[in-house]
Each structure stands twice: as C-alpha cells, then as structure tokens.
C-alpha cells in the first residue's frame, strides 16, 4: 500500500519562475489498485509520479510504501521496488547496448551488482522466453542494439524491463503518448496483460480519456495540484467520456482544458 501524506512541492522557489505544483496533496493507493490519472495542463500528473519515484526531493509531506517511510530514499534505492516507463521511448533503455544487455540490467535490479557475468546461457534463454510473450519478434534479436528498435519496440522492452522483477509499484508516465495509434494499442494491451497477470499495483498517467476510462479499476482527475475526482468500483465501470467531462465542469465551473487530450 502506498500512502502520500500532505505532499508539497514548489519548483524554483523565490524566483520569477516559481511554480507551486502541490500544496498538501494526499493519496492512498491500495494493493492491487490500477489507477489511471488524467488532468489538465500543469495539473502535476508527472510531478506526482516523479515525487513518488524520488527524481527530486519534496518540500514537505511523507511518502510511505507498505508502512515504511521512503520520503528520504534516493531515486536509485526506490528503484528496488518501483518500476517505471517514461513517455519518451529514449529514456527507458540504453541505446548503444544490446537488448539482452538491457534486460540483464533489469534482471539484476535491486540486487547488489557484482563482478559476475552480466549474461549467461541461462539468462539468455529466460530473456527470449520473456520476449516471446510480445508479438514484436524481439526474441530472436537479443543481440541487436536497442537504438535500432522502433519507439514501440523500445517501450515494450522498457515495460518488460520494469516488470521483469515484479515491482511493488509500477509508474507509467504517458508511456504510449509518443507512439502511433496501432503500436499504442499493442503496448496498452501488453500493459494490461502484465498488470493483470502479475497483480502489480499501478499508477498510469495518460492524456487519452478513453484509455483512462477503459483501463484500471480507479480513475483520478487532477487539477492545479489537487485531486478533484476519484472514481472507483461500479462508478468507474459505468463511466463515459461525456459523463467525466460534465462531472469536471460541475466541480470546477470551468471547461477541462488539455492541449493534447484525446477524447476518443
């Protein structure tokens, strides 16, 4: 269970670019929750994920994972129990290394890395078994450098790397936003399949309202650093896009604005 208590974060404090993203944000994520997060421009969706992952220190508040306080833990230590996939397909993999070398790094995540070989026959076999679960033909290209892969292939690979060692928490930051619609669908299907199979607690930021409604068991809408809607269970299952938008307008008295939002 992940608990966020009273998080606050201001970027560039004391400068003309000062930007208060949250001031007292709290959220409780139950084990097995698959939360989709939507929100208008600058709502703080990505900042929320980055704060949980420890990319930057937060100014105030506490973050607990399974009861232990991880607020002060550096990013690389939180990686032991948090898997991440980024919006930019370039960010999740090491381009000049091969597929199998990338997988090897993910395979030894959260372990003490040592001078043992990064790869051996046993690992290679395991990796090609993992890759054969996605219909991209990567299982026969273990020795290919990742920079030669397409964006979709890289995102699928990053997703496998993030979930290979089952994380306590999976953070997806618009991970299909920069893919073409067909590949995005493929990666989304793969995402749902892995999350369901491994029962991974997940927070997924998306700007695609349809995905947000269709995927997961709980939907959160953020606006100006606050959680304005938190819909789960039956209500979530019967949600539609017009219903969601009207709920937002009722609450905020303004229209939902997001440059890149996809209504269908």
């Amino acid at each position: 269970m992940l608990v966020l208590e009273n998080l606050s974060k201001t970027f560039n404090p004391g400068t003309p670019n000062e930007n208060q993203v949250f001031n007292g944000l709290s959220l409780k994520v139950e084990d097995g929750d698959f939360i989709t997060v939507i929100g208008s421009n600058g709502a703080g969706k990505s900042t929320l994920l980055n704060a949980i992952a420890g990319v930057f220190p937060i100014d105030g508040g506490k973050i607990y994972l399974d009861g232990s306080d991880i607020t002060g833990l550096p990013e690389y230590k939180r990686a032991a129990f948090i898997g991440r996939v980024f919006q930019d397909p370039m960010l999740g993999t090491s381009p000049s290394m091969t597929i199998e070398e990338n997988l090897s790094l993910a395979f030894s995540r959260a372990e003490n890395i040592s001078l043992r070989w990064g790869l051996n026959a046993e690992k290679r076999k395991l990796f090609s078994k993992y890759l054969s679960t996605i219909p991209l033909g990567l299982e026969n290209r273990l020795n290919t450098k990742v920079k030669l892969l397409s964006g979709g292939q890289r995102q699928a690979l990053t997703l496998i790397m993030a979930t290979m060692k089952k994380p306590r928490l999976l953070l997806l930051d618009e991970h299909t936003a920069s893919l073409d619609p067909k590949t995005a669908t493929l990666v989304n299907e793969l995402t749902e399949e892995i999350i369901k199979r491994e029962k991974i607690t997940t927070i997924m930021v998306t700007h695609n309202l349809e995905h947000a409604i269709k995927m997961g068991n709980r939907l959160i809408m953020m606006h100006k650093g606050r959680i304005v809607l938190d819909i789960m269970g039956e209500e979530k299952a019967s949600l539609t896009i017009p219903l969601l938008l009207s709920k937002f307008e009722q609450l905020q008295g303004e229209k939902f604005v997001e440059d890149r939002v996809m209504l269908a």
Binding site: A53, P74, E75, Y76, K77, A79, A80, R84, F86, M90, L91, G92, T93, S94, P95, S96, M97, E101, N102, S104, L105, A106, S108, R109, A110, I113, S114, L115, R116, W117, G118, L119, M161, A162
Partner: peptide
C-alpha cells in the same frame, strides 16, 4: 571482461543513459 560483468554493464549504461540505469536501481 570487466565491461561484460554486471558492474561493467552498469558502467556502460551510466554513460549511455543515466536516467535509465538509476531507474534500474544503480547508484550512478
């Protein structure tokens, strides 16, 4: 040989994509 060990791979990833290797739990 060193560059093919777990530590060696982590070193190569550090130069190639530090964000990625940090998110795999390595102290860059």
């Amino acid at each position: 040989a060193f560059l093919k060990t777990q530590l060696g791979l982590a070193l190569r990833a550090t130069g190639d994509n530090p964000q990625m290797i940090r998110s795999q739990g390595v102290n860059t």
